[in-house]
Design a protein around this nucleic acid. Structure first.
Lengths: 217, 217
DNA sequence: GGGCAAATTAGGGAAATTCCCTATTCTGCC
DNA sequence: GGCAGAATAGGGAATTTCCCTAATTTGCCC
Protein backbone atom coordinates (compact mmCIF):
# COMPACT_ATOMS: atom_id res chain seq x y z
CA UNK A 1 0.00 0.00 0.00
CA UNK A 2 1.29 3.43 -0.90
CA UNK A 3 1.98 6.37 1.37
CA UNK A 4 -0.87 8.91 1.29
CA UNK A 5 0.36 12.49 1.39
CA UNK A 6 -1.10 15.99 1.72
CA UNK A 7 0.96 18.91 0.41
CA UNK A 8 0.50 22.19 2.26
CA UNK A 9 2.16 25.27 0.82
CA UNK A 10 0.89 28.71 -0.07
CA UNK A 11 2.76 28.92 -3.36
CA UNK A 12 0.98 27.18 -6.15
CA UNK A 13 4.14 26.45 -8.10
CA UNK A 14 5.74 24.80 -5.10
CA UNK A 15 2.67 22.67 -4.46
CA UNK A 16 2.42 21.57 -8.05
CA UNK A 17 6.14 21.00 -8.29
CA UNK A 18 6.21 18.85 -5.19
CA UNK A 19 3.19 16.91 -6.34
CA UNK A 20 4.80 16.28 -9.71
CA UNK A 21 8.00 15.14 -8.09
CA UNK A 22 6.29 12.82 -5.64
CA UNK A 23 4.06 11.33 -8.32
CA UNK A 24 7.15 9.92 -9.96
CA UNK A 25 7.95 7.96 -6.85
CA UNK A 26 6.37 4.58 -6.45
CA UNK A 27 4.50 3.80 -3.23
CA UNK A 28 3.58 7.48 -2.89
CA UNK A 29 0.22 9.11 -3.54
CA UNK A 30 -0.58 12.83 -3.16
CA UNK A 31 -4.20 12.79 -2.01
CA UNK A 32 -4.70 16.54 -1.55
CA UNK A 33 -3.13 19.99 -1.61
CA UNK A 34 -3.77 22.94 0.69
CA UNK A 35 -2.71 26.55 0.46
CA UNK A 36 -3.13 27.55 4.09
CA UNK A 37 -3.19 26.15 7.60
CA UNK A 38 -6.94 25.98 8.02
CA UNK A 39 -7.47 24.10 4.78
CA UNK A 40 -4.75 21.66 5.81
CA UNK A 41 -6.49 21.15 9.12
CA UNK A 42 -9.75 20.19 7.48
CA UNK A 43 -8.19 18.01 4.83
CA UNK A 44 -6.26 16.17 7.53
CA UNK A 45 -9.52 15.48 9.37
CA UNK A 46 -11.28 14.22 6.24
CA UNK A 47 -8.50 12.18 4.72
CA UNK A 48 -6.30 11.03 7.60
CA UNK A 49 -3.16 10.96 5.45
CA UNK A 50 0.04 9.19 6.41
CA UNK A 51 2.18 12.27 5.90
CA UNK A 52 1.67 16.02 5.57
CA UNK A 53 4.44 17.97 3.88
CA UNK A 54 3.94 21.29 5.62
CA UNK A 55 5.32 24.69 4.70
CA UNK A 56 6.27 26.58 7.84
CA UNK A 57 5.32 30.06 6.64
CA UNK A 58 1.77 30.09 5.36
CA UNK A 59 -0.82 32.85 5.41
CA UNK A 60 -3.91 32.64 7.56
CA UNK A 61 -2.69 29.92 9.93
CA UNK A 62 1.00 29.13 9.97
CA UNK A 63 2.48 25.67 9.64
CA UNK A 64 3.59 25.48 13.24
CA UNK A 65 0.20 26.07 14.80
CA UNK A 66 -1.45 23.93 12.15
CA UNK A 67 0.89 21.07 12.98
CA UNK A 68 0.15 21.38 16.66
CA UNK A 69 -3.59 21.17 16.11
CA UNK A 70 -3.44 18.37 13.59
CA UNK A 71 -1.27 16.18 15.79
CA UNK A 72 -3.49 16.93 18.75
CA UNK A 73 -6.41 15.51 16.83
CA UNK A 74 -4.57 12.66 15.15
CA UNK A 75 -1.13 11.74 16.49
CA UNK A 76 -0.67 9.05 13.83
CA UNK A 77 -0.09 11.59 11.08
CA UNK A 78 3.55 12.41 10.37
CA UNK A 79 4.35 16.02 9.61
CA UNK A 80 7.38 16.87 7.50
CA UNK A 81 8.20 20.55 7.83
CA UNK A 82 9.46 22.37 4.76
CA UNK A 83 10.95 25.82 5.06
CA UNK A 84 13.02 28.41 3.28
CA UNK A 85 14.68 29.58 6.46
CA UNK A 86 16.94 27.69 8.79
CA UNK A 87 15.92 30.11 11.54
CA UNK A 88 16.34 28.58 14.97
CA UNK A 89 12.97 29.80 16.16
CA UNK A 90 11.14 28.00 13.40
CA UNK A 91 13.01 24.77 13.83
CA UNK A 92 12.58 24.63 17.58
CA UNK A 93 8.92 25.63 17.41
CA UNK A 94 8.16 23.13 14.66
CA UNK A 95 9.78 20.24 16.46
CA UNK A 96 8.06 21.22 19.69
CA UNK A 97 4.81 21.17 17.77
CA UNK A 98 5.58 17.54 16.98
CA UNK A 99 6.94 17.54 13.45
CA UNK A 100 8.77 14.38 12.43
CA UNK A 101 11.18 16.11 10.14
CA UNK A 102 12.50 19.46 8.95
CA UNK A 103 13.68 20.02 5.40
CA UNK A 104 15.09 23.14 3.79
CA UNK A 105 13.41 24.15 0.56
CA UNK A 106 16.60 24.06 -1.46
CA UNK A 107 17.18 20.36 -0.84
CA UNK A 108 17.33 17.78 -3.59
CA UNK A 109 14.52 15.41 -4.46
CA UNK A 110 16.53 12.56 -3.05
CA UNK A 111 16.54 14.23 0.32
CA UNK A 112 12.78 14.57 0.23
CA UNK A 113 12.26 10.89 -0.50
CA UNK A 114 14.83 9.90 2.10
CA UNK A 115 13.02 12.07 4.62
CA UNK A 116 9.69 10.48 3.74
CA UNK A 117 11.14 6.97 4.11
CA UNK A 118 12.68 7.90 7.43
CA UNK A 119 9.66 9.46 9.05
CA UNK A 120 7.26 6.82 7.79
CA UNK A 121 9.22 4.35 9.90
CA UNK A 122 8.68 6.52 12.93
CA UNK A 123 12.08 8.14 13.02
CA UNK A 124 13.06 11.80 12.76
CA UNK A 125 14.65 13.33 9.67
CA UNK A 126 16.48 16.65 9.71
CA UNK A 127 18.32 18.51 6.95
CA UNK A 128 22.04 18.50 7.72
CA UNK A 129 22.02 22.26 8.32
CA UNK A 130 19.16 21.86 10.75
CA UNK A 131 20.86 19.25 12.91
CA UNK A 132 23.37 21.77 14.21
CA UNK A 133 20.64 24.08 15.36
CA UNK A 134 18.84 21.31 17.18
CA UNK A 135 21.99 20.15 18.91
CA UNK A 136 22.82 23.71 19.87
CA UNK A 137 19.36 24.16 21.31
CA UNK A 138 19.72 20.87 23.19
CA UNK A 139 23.05 21.85 24.64
CA UNK A 140 21.86 25.24 25.83
CA UNK A 141 21.03 25.49 29.50
CA UNK A 142 17.36 25.27 30.28
CA UNK A 143 16.42 28.59 31.78
CA UNK A 144 17.62 30.68 28.89
CA UNK A 145 14.40 29.91 27.09
CA UNK A 146 13.56 30.88 23.52
CA UNK A 147 12.05 34.36 23.61
CA UNK A 148 9.85 34.15 20.57
CA UNK A 149 6.24 34.57 19.62
CA UNK A 150 5.89 30.83 19.98
CA UNK A 151 6.63 30.86 23.68
CA UNK A 152 5.25 34.21 24.85
CA UNK A 153 1.94 34.14 23.03
CA UNK A 154 -0.85 31.60 23.07
CA UNK A 155 -1.81 29.94 19.82
CA UNK A 156 -4.93 32.01 19.42
CA UNK A 157 -2.95 35.17 20.07
CA UNK A 158 -0.42 34.24 17.39
CA UNK A 159 -3.26 33.53 15.00
CA UNK A 160 -4.79 36.94 15.63
CA UNK A 161 -1.39 38.61 15.39
CA UNK A 162 -0.71 36.99 12.04
CA UNK A 163 -4.09 37.96 10.62
CA UNK A 164 -3.58 41.52 11.83
CA UNK A 165 -0.15 41.67 10.27
CA UNK A 166 -1.69 40.44 7.02
CA UNK A 167 -3.87 43.52 7.00
CA UNK A 168 -7.17 42.21 8.36
CA UNK A 169 -9.43 44.35 10.51
CA UNK A 170 -10.81 43.20 13.84
CA UNK A 171 -14.12 42.42 12.16
CA UNK A 172 -12.56 40.43 9.35
CA UNK A 173 -10.58 38.39 11.82
CA UNK A 174 -13.71 37.72 13.86
CA UNK A 175 -15.53 36.49 10.75
CA UNK A 176 -12.61 34.33 9.72
CA UNK A 177 -12.27 32.70 13.12
CA UNK A 178 -16.03 32.52 13.76
CA UNK A 179 -15.79 34.41 17.02
CA UNK A 180 -17.08 37.77 18.23
CA UNK A 181 -15.17 40.95 17.34
CA UNK A 182 -15.08 41.56 21.07
CA UNK A 183 -13.08 38.40 21.54
CA UNK A 184 -10.62 39.36 18.85
CA UNK A 185 -10.26 42.69 20.61
CA UNK A 186 -9.46 40.90 23.82
CA UNK A 187 -6.79 38.81 22.14
CA UNK A 188 -5.32 41.87 20.50
CA UNK A 189 -5.14 43.84 23.72
CA UNK A 190 -3.58 40.93 25.59
CA UNK A 191 -0.98 40.11 22.98
CA UNK A 192 -0.02 43.74 22.55
CA UNK A 193 0.49 44.21 26.26
CA UNK A 194 2.49 40.96 26.37
CA UNK A 195 4.75 42.25 23.61
CA UNK A 196 4.76 45.78 25.00
CA UNK A 197 3.75 47.16 21.62
CA UNK A 198 0.93 49.66 21.19
CA UNK A 199 0.60 50.20 17.47
CA UNK A 200 -0.07 48.17 14.37
CA UNK A 201 3.06 49.29 12.54
CA UNK A 202 5.46 47.88 15.10
CA UNK A 203 3.25 44.85 15.54
CA UNK A 204 3.56 44.16 11.83
CA UNK A 205 7.32 44.48 12.04
CA UNK A 206 7.36 42.09 14.98
CA UNK A 207 5.30 39.58 13.01
CA UNK A 208 7.70 39.88 10.09
CA UNK A 209 10.70 39.33 12.34
CA UNK A 210 9.07 36.28 13.89
CA UNK A 211 8.22 34.93 10.47
CA UNK A 212 4.46 35.00 11.10
CA UNK A 213 4.06 37.03 7.95
CA UNK A 214 6.29 38.20 5.14
CA UNK A 215 7.08 41.74 4.04
CA UNK A 216 5.32 41.09 0.70
CA UNK A 217 2.08 42.89 0.15
CA UNK B 1 41.39 75.52 2.85
CA UNK B 2 39.96 72.21 3.92
CA UNK B 3 36.69 70.60 2.85
CA UNK B 4 33.95 71.10 5.45
CA UNK B 5 31.77 68.03 5.88
CA UNK B 6 28.56 67.04 7.68
CA UNK B 7 28.01 63.36 8.43
CA UNK B 8 24.37 62.23 8.48
CA UNK B 9 23.64 58.69 9.59
CA UNK B 10 21.28 57.24 12.17
CA UNK B 11 23.81 54.75 13.56
CA UNK B 12 26.13 56.30 16.08
CA UNK B 13 28.94 53.86 15.37
CA UNK B 14 28.83 54.60 11.68
CA UNK B 15 28.87 58.34 12.29
CA UNK B 16 31.77 58.13 14.70
CA UNK B 17 33.59 55.68 12.50
CA UNK B 18 33.27 57.89 9.45
CA UNK B 19 34.30 60.95 11.40
CA UNK B 20 37.37 59.16 12.73
CA UNK B 21 38.31 57.99 9.26
CA UNK B 22 37.88 61.39 7.70
CA UNK B 23 39.79 63.14 10.45
CA UNK B 24 42.88 61.26 9.36
CA UNK B 25 42.65 62.82 5.94
CA UNK B 26 44.29 66.16 5.42
CA UNK B 27 42.22 68.97 3.89
CA UNK B 28 39.07 67.48 5.43
CA UNK B 29 37.12 68.73 8.45
CA UNK B 30 33.98 67.15 9.89
CA UNK B 31 32.03 70.15 11.16
CA UNK B 32 28.90 68.36 12.38
CA UNK B 33 27.04 65.09 12.68
CA UNK B 34 23.30 64.42 12.39
CA UNK B 35 21.24 61.35 13.14
CA UNK B 36 18.17 62.13 11.06
CA UNK B 37 17.03 64.08 8.08
CA UNK B 38 15.57 67.07 9.91
CA UNK B 39 18.72 67.63 11.94
CA UNK B 40 20.76 67.46 8.76
CA UNK B 41 18.49 70.01 7.16
CA UNK B 42 19.03 72.49 9.97
CA UNK B 43 22.76 71.92 10.23
CA UNK B 44 23.07 72.42 6.50
CA UNK B 45 21.31 75.79 6.84
CA UNK B 46 23.51 76.89 9.73
CA UNK B 47 26.86 75.68 8.52
CA UNK B 48 26.69 75.64 4.72
CA UNK B 49 29.15 72.76 4.44
CA UNK B 50 30.94 71.79 1.26
CA UNK B 51 29.82 68.19 1.42
CA UNK B 52 27.17 66.16 3.25
CA UNK B 53 27.78 62.44 3.53
CA UNK B 54 24.17 61.27 3.69
CA UNK B 55 22.82 57.90 4.71
CA UNK B 56 19.88 56.97 2.49
CA UNK B 57 17.82 55.17 5.10
CA UNK B 58 17.32 57.37 8.13
CA UNK B 59 14.40 57.56 10.54
CA UNK B 60 12.18 60.62 10.73
CA UNK B 61 13.10 62.12 7.35
CA UNK B 62 14.90 59.91 4.89
CA UNK B 63 18.08 60.84 3.08
CA UNK B 64 16.42 61.24 -0.27
CA UNK B 65 13.88 63.83 0.76
CA UNK B 66 16.44 65.54 2.95
CA UNK B 67 18.80 65.85 -0.02
CA UNK B 68 16.07 67.30 -2.18
CA UNK B 69 15.24 69.99 0.35
CA UNK B 70 18.82 70.84 1.16
CA UNK B 71 19.80 71.24 -2.48
CA UNK B 72 16.71 73.29 -3.09
CA UNK B 73 17.85 75.74 -0.43
CA UNK B 74 21.54 75.64 -1.28
CA UNK B 75 22.57 74.10 -4.60
CA UNK B 76 26.26 74.61 -3.83
CA UNK B 77 26.33 71.81 -1.28
CA UNK B 78 27.47 68.44 -2.63
CA UNK B 79 25.64 65.40 -1.29
CA UNK B 80 27.39 62.04 -1.21
CA UNK B 81 24.85 59.25 -0.70
CA UNK B 82 25.86 56.32 1.44
CA UNK B 83 23.74 53.19 1.52
CA UNK B 84 23.72 49.55 2.51
CA UNK B 85 21.53 48.57 -0.41
CA UNK B 86 22.25 48.79 -4.10
CA UNK B 87 18.48 48.85 -4.70
CA UNK B 88 17.65 50.51 -8.00
CA UNK B 89 14.88 52.59 -6.50
CA UNK B 90 17.20 54.21 -3.99
CA UNK B 91 19.89 54.95 -6.49
CA UNK B 92 17.56 56.48 -9.04
CA UNK B 93 15.66 58.48 -6.43
CA UNK B 94 18.84 59.74 -4.81
CA UNK B 95 20.37 60.88 -8.07
CA UNK B 96 17.10 62.50 -9.10
CA UNK B 97 17.18 64.34 -5.80
CA UNK B 98 20.50 65.76 -6.91
CA UNK B 99 23.13 63.71 -5.10
CA UNK B 100 26.66 64.02 -6.51
CA UNK B 101 27.64 60.49 -5.66
CA UNK B 102 26.44 57.13 -4.42
CA UNK B 103 28.61 54.86 -2.29
CA UNK B 104 27.88 51.44 -0.88
CA UNK B 105 28.55 51.08 2.82
CA UNK B 106 30.95 48.19 2.41
CA UNK B 107 33.40 50.24 0.38
CA UNK B 108 36.96 50.93 1.46
CA UNK B 109 38.22 54.18 2.90
CA UNK B 110 40.10 54.86 -0.31
CA UNK B 111 36.83 54.82 -2.20
CA UNK B 112 35.34 57.35 0.18
CA UNK B 113 38.23 59.76 -0.23
CA UNK B 114 38.24 59.24 -3.99
CA UNK B 115 34.53 59.99 -4.03
CA UNK B 116 35.04 63.15 -1.98
CA UNK B 117 37.80 64.34 -4.31
CA UNK B 118 35.66 63.63 -7.33
CA UNK B 119 32.50 65.37 -6.23
CA UNK B 120 34.32 68.39 -4.80
CA UNK B 121 35.49 69.07 -8.33
CA UNK B 122 31.90 69.04 -9.49
CA UNK B 123 31.90 65.60 -11.00
CA UNK B 124 29.78 62.55 -10.15
CA UNK B 125 31.15 59.54 -8.28
CA UNK B 126 29.39 56.17 -8.24
CA UNK B 127 30.39 52.87 -6.66
CA UNK B 128 31.24 50.38 -9.41
CA UNK B 129 28.20 48.26 -8.56
CA UNK B 130 26.00 51.32 -8.82
CA UNK B 131 27.16 52.32 -12.27
CA UNK B 132 25.45 49.33 -13.87
CA UNK B 133 22.15 50.27 -12.35
CA UNK B 134 22.38 53.82 -13.55
CA UNK B 135 23.29 52.76 -17.06
CA UNK B 136 20.45 50.27 -17.07
CA UNK B 137 18.05 52.94 -15.95
CA UNK B 138 19.37 55.26 -18.64
CA UNK B 139 18.96 52.67 -21.36
CA UNK B 140 15.40 51.78 -20.42
CA UNK B 141 12.69 53.36 -22.52
CA UNK B 142 11.11 56.42 -21.03
CA UNK B 143 7.49 55.54 -20.39
CA UNK B 144 8.15 52.52 -18.25
CA UNK B 145 8.74 54.84 -15.33
CA UNK B 146 9.89 53.86 -11.87
CA UNK B 147 6.82 52.92 -9.89
CA UNK B 148 8.02 53.68 -6.41
CA UNK B 149 6.99 55.71 -3.41
CA UNK B 150 9.27 58.43 -4.68
CA UNK B 151 7.27 59.01 -7.81
CA UNK B 152 3.71 58.27 -6.73
CA UNK B 153 3.69 60.13 -3.44
CA UNK B 154 4.46 63.73 -2.64
CA UNK B 155 7.26 64.46 -0.22
CA UNK B 156 4.91 65.28 2.63
CA UNK B 157 3.01 62.08 2.01
CA UNK B 158 6.21 60.03 2.13
CA UNK B 159 7.15 61.78 5.34
CA UNK B 160 3.82 60.92 6.94
CA UNK B 161 4.00 57.36 5.61
CA UNK B 162 7.43 56.87 7.10
CA UNK B 163 6.41 58.21 10.50
CA UNK B 164 3.34 55.99 10.47
CA UNK B 165 5.42 52.96 9.59
CA UNK B 166 7.71 53.82 12.48
CA UNK B 167 4.77 53.43 14.83
CA UNK B 168 3.70 57.02 15.40
CA UNK B 169 0.06 57.96 15.89
CA UNK B 170 -1.65 60.71 13.92
CA UNK B 171 -1.27 63.05 16.90
CA UNK B 172 2.42 62.29 17.35
CA UNK B 173 3.06 62.94 13.67
CA UNK B 174 1.16 66.22 13.87
CA UNK B 175 3.29 67.33 16.82
CA UNK B 176 6.50 66.28 15.09
CA UNK B 177 5.66 68.12 11.88
CA UNK B 178 4.06 71.12 13.63
CA UNK B 179 0.81 70.78 11.71
CA UNK B 180 -2.75 69.97 12.71
CA UNK B 181 -3.76 66.31 13.26
CA UNK B 182 -6.44 67.00 10.69
CA UNK B 183 -3.79 67.71 8.10
CA UNK B 184 -1.94 64.52 8.91
CA UNK B 185 -5.22 62.69 8.49
CA UNK B 186 -5.65 64.28 5.09
CA UNK B 187 -2.19 63.16 4.01
CA UNK B 188 -2.81 59.68 5.32
CA UNK B 189 -6.12 59.30 3.50
CA UNK B 190 -4.67 60.58 0.27
CA UNK B 191 -1.54 58.47 0.32
CA UNK B 192 -3.49 55.37 1.24
CA UNK B 193 -5.90 55.85 -1.62
CA UNK B 194 -2.98 56.50 -3.97
CA UNK B 195 -1.38 53.23 -2.91
CA UNK B 196 -4.71 51.45 -2.80
CA UNK B 197 -3.98 50.26 0.71
CA UNK B 198 -6.49 50.58 3.53
CA UNK B 199 -4.73 49.32 6.62
CA UNK B 200 -1.63 50.09 8.63
CA UNK B 201 -0.19 46.58 8.42
CA UNK B 202 0.11 46.58 4.65
CA UNK B 203 1.19 50.19 4.71
CA UNK B 204 4.04 49.23 7.01
CA UNK B 205 5.05 46.43 4.67
CA UNK B 206 4.96 48.82 1.74
CA UNK B 207 7.19 51.26 3.62
CA UNK B 208 9.61 48.44 4.39
CA UNK B 209 9.71 47.36 0.75
CA UNK B 210 10.32 50.91 -0.36
CA UNK B 211 13.05 51.32 2.22
CA UNK B 212 11.28 54.14 4.04
CA UNK B 213 11.61 52.17 7.25
CA UNK B 214 13.28 48.96 8.31
CA UNK B 215 11.75 45.82 9.77
CA UNK B 216 13.59 46.42 13.05
CA UNK B 217 11.49 47.38 16.02
C1' DG C 1 0.71 86.60 -17.03
C1' DG C 2 -3.25 83.87 -16.44
C1' DG C 3 -4.76 79.86 -15.11
C1' DC C 4 -4.84 74.97 -14.04
C1' DA C 5 -3.46 70.88 -11.49
C1' DA C 6 -1.46 69.26 -7.51
C1' DA C 7 0.23 69.92 -2.82
C1' DT C 8 -0.52 71.43 1.79
C1' DT C 9 -3.19 73.01 5.09
C1' DA C 10 -7.38 72.24 8.21
C1' DG C 11 -12.30 72.11 10.08
C1' DG C 12 -17.09 69.69 10.98
C1' DG C 13 -19.64 65.79 12.06
C1' DA C 14 -21.29 61.06 11.64
C1' DA C 15 -19.57 56.47 12.06
C1' DA C 16 -16.54 53.15 13.52
C1' DT C 17 -13.04 51.47 16.54
C1' DT C 18 -10.35 51.22 20.54
C1' DC C 19 -9.68 50.85 25.31
C1' DC C 20 -10.68 49.31 29.89
C1' DC C 21 -13.51 46.64 32.98
C1' DT C 22 -15.97 42.74 34.07
C1' DA C 23 -17.45 37.91 33.65
C1' DT C 24 -18.23 33.08 32.24
C1' DT C 25 -16.57 28.73 30.65
C1' DC C 26 -13.10 25.34 29.76
C1' DT C 27 -8.75 22.96 30.06
C1' DG C 28 -4.60 21.37 31.90
C1' DC C 29 -2.09 20.57 35.93
C1' DC C 30 -0.34 20.00 40.83
C1' DG D 1 -10.60 20.05 44.11
C1' DG D 2 -8.97 24.05 42.83
C1' DC D 3 -6.05 27.27 40.59
C1' DA D 4 -3.88 29.58 36.65
C1' DG D 5 -4.26 30.68 32.10
C1' DA D 6 -6.70 30.65 27.76
C1' DA D 7 -10.76 31.72 25.13
C1' DT D 8 -14.95 33.70 24.95
C1' DA D 9 -17.78 38.15 24.96
C1' DG D 10 -20.59 42.27 26.61
C1' DG D 11 -21.07 47.48 28.20
C1' DG D 12 -19.82 52.01 27.71
C1' DA D 13 -16.75 55.99 27.57
C1' DA D 14 -13.16 57.88 24.79
C1' DT D 15 -10.78 58.23 20.73
C1' DT D 16 -10.01 57.85 15.92
C1' DT D 17 -11.32 57.31 11.35
C1' DC D 18 -13.72 58.54 7.35
C1' DC D 19 -15.77 61.61 4.10
C1' DC D 20 -16.80 66.24 2.66
C1' DT D 21 -15.52 70.74 1.98
C1' DA D 22 -12.33 74.56 1.34
C1' DA D 23 -8.54 78.08 1.57
C1' DT D 24 -3.83 78.95 0.28
C1' DT D 25 0.28 78.00 -2.05
C1' DT D 26 3.22 76.32 -5.71
C1' DG D 27 4.92 74.88 -9.85
C1' DC D 28 4.19 74.77 -14.53
C1' DC D 29 2.17 75.02 -19.26
C1' DC D 30 0.51 77.80 -23.09
Amino acid sequence: MSIRIIIADDHTIVRHGLTKLLQQEKDVEVVAQAQNGHATLELARELSPDVIVMDVGMPDLNGIDATQQILHENPNIKVLALSMHAGKKFVVAMLKAGASGYLLKDCALEELTTALQTIIYGRIYLSPAITDIVVDSYVRQPGEAEQSAFSVLSQREREVLQLMAEGNTTKQIALRLHISPKTVEGHRLRLMSKLNIDNIAQLTKYAIQEGLTSAEL
